[in-house]
Design a binder for these strands. Structure first.
Lengths: 337, 337
DNA sequence: AGAATTCACTGAACCGGATAAGTTGTGGAG
DNA sequence: CTCCACAACTTATCCGGTTCAGTGAATTCT
């Protein structure tokens, strides 16, 4: 089946290719009557502009890129990324931008993908997740002048737009809540320690704990997987001075931690309170349901997409806080016995 | 920053654009010495062919499309799709194809996306998931002659390639296993009843149950979410003749079912055995760990991607069975008390 | 009324590759 | 020694849009 082109429309309307292009793009240069006739013909024959031709002459590919840099087995379990993608899509589809996805193994490979996409003119901008300290991707994006928006800061990204949630505030709120319940030994099982938002949380956790006079506040680094989260929990719980409350950096680790506690004969929340970061349906399914730091991840993603589209349009964008988590108390937190 | 083009390479190498094109694409028409010189220059200046220009002259966009048609809140929790995507990526990246993703609300919108993509020449083929009975997408894909591979059959897809797993066999194996343990009242909480693979499982479930003389085998339709799965479980367990074993069509519903059973004071597996379809880390995290139908979802996706790439290359492809689930017994199944 | 401006459109160049058709130069067969 | 075949290129055209520089006619201004 042959795809209709503007030449076909031009022939049927009895005008030139140029006139069709002006008409379909809302440019001046054609009368309203002609425009409507052309648009009607385009509708009728089901015309869609060839994106390659468009990208070749104009500048825009009408597509944005997203690279995900986590091993496959970690991606699968984390509801976070799917939520983020849903949010992107809502915004991108509305402006008929496509989303191009690539799963890679290392940040260095991510850089290579950016370079290739840029060279191929395949995308108009990228969404950068999992910002790290001295992230290798930032200078490359600046050098290529590739529009971008960074999720997972705040960090030092120069002129590149950022969307971030106030993780420090959320940690502080959570610790205060646990202390108010009477907890004095609070631990935290963190996500990948390279990630900037992990470091932000860790610093905020240390700060609030020492300001409240809790000396035994430890953060155990982990990697978001259930296995590691369980192991970290076991390590925390075998000591004599075991914590009475643990904050986990995601829900999967929190669920694993709950399982470990129960396996060790500890009552939740009687012997151990548990708080999960990010509130997927998972948290409500287990017994007891987990107190969680909820945030609207899809809206977070949508926000990032909006910022990226603005950056692509050449608007100056800055540093936006969006989707800050708030505490949703459920059955997994209580005063310690 | 200006993107290098073959014209730049041609100038530096002192040859014509055509020669560069032949050299970089491994076509005959240039000497080996010249080819190496050209390739070296391309390397040096970091050349990537403009995908738009390539798509415009040749036929290939070097991209495939995937539409996901589930509400955002269902996408997030299901590890299945992320696993599938990881599998695609592994195969696509190796042949430097991009994956374009679109989340839509209904199959009708999916069709529109296909039409648009085709018209825009944005993609070379699509991966179709969640095959339905009399699926509206199939005739459109045939009409557009858009290379495609269908996941979730087997069904009637004409000349379009299919990759499917032997769900009927897996159901049969599971029921036989439960009967061997001594169960006589087995129920099933299914996924979306419109989907063809759900119907396949339901038919196979009825067939094996009646062949084994189990008359009370019911399937309760659900929608893959924890909430619905929990509700369906509650409905099954409040009767007098409550089942002693339930098979769930995904792991999220199985975990929710487990929670409901425990909330109702039933011991798992003593009073109720539970089997989950698809074995994400989730299944091992809960207490007791869930007996599951494991399959390598990423490999399933990789297989589909390979078939699609073959179809794009014009090879005749058919009907392939891949990634059949096998039973992984864990702590959630035992003889009934 | 005549000049200036605006409008509605046409024609052609251009984006960056792929590729068919034409042009050399070289070596071997007759 | 001539002719032919073939390798090794060059030239030109095409893909399907966008956009700029015209062009003729209608309208406005003085």
């Amino acid at each position: 089946m042959k795809r209709p082109t503007i030449a076909d429309i031009a022939r049927r309307a009895g005008v030139s290719k140029g006139a069709v292009s002006y008409a379909l793009n809302g440019q001046p240069g054609v009368s309203e009557a002609t425009r409507q006739r052309i648009v009607a013909i385009a509708q009728e024959i089901g015309f869609n502009p060839n994106s390659a031709a468009r990208a070749l002459s104009g500048a825009s590919a009408r597509a944005v890129g997203l690279t995900l840099c986590r091993p496959a087995r970690m991606l699968g379990i984390e509801p976070f990324f799917m939520g983020l993608i849903s949010g992107f899509e809502a915004e991108l589809a509305a402006r008929s931008y496509a989303l191009t996805l690539q799963v890679v193994a290392t940040p260095e490979l991510e850089v290579e993908v950016y370079r290739r996409w840029w060279g191929e003119r395949r995308i108009d901008g990228v969404i950068v997740t999992d910002l790290r300290e001295n992230d290798v991707r930032i200078p490359v994006l600046q050098q290529l002048q590739l529009p971008a928006v960074v999720i997972g800061g705040p960090g030092d990204t120069g002129r590149i737009a950022q969307v971030w949630s106030d993780d420090a505030g959320a940690v502080t709120e959570t610790v205060r809540y646990l202390v108010a319940l009477g907890h004095r030994r609070i631990a935290r099982v963190s996500g990948l320690p390279d990630l900037l938002h992990t470091q932000t949380r860790t610093k905020a956790f240390s700060a609030v704990c020492s300001s409240l006079g809790l000396n035994e506040a430890v953060t155990v680094p982990s990697d978001y997987t259930g296995e590691e989260g369980g192991r970290a929990t076991r390590r925390l719980l075998i000591g004599n001075d075991r914590p009475t409350a643990i904050i986990y950096d995601n829900d999967v680790m929190a669920v694993a931690g709950l399982a470990v506690a129960q396996e060790m004969g500890l009552a939740v929340p009687g012997d151990l309170s548990i708080v999960a970061w990010d509130d997927s349906p998972l948290c409500s399914l287990v017994h007891p349901p987990l107190t969680a730091l909820s945030r609207d991840i899809a809206e977070y993603g949508a926000h990032a997409a909006r910022e990226l589209l603005a950056a692509i349009d050449g608007k100056q964008v800055g540093n936006v806080e969006a989707g800050t988590a708030h505490l949703t108390p459920r059955g997994s937190t209580a005063p310690p016995r």
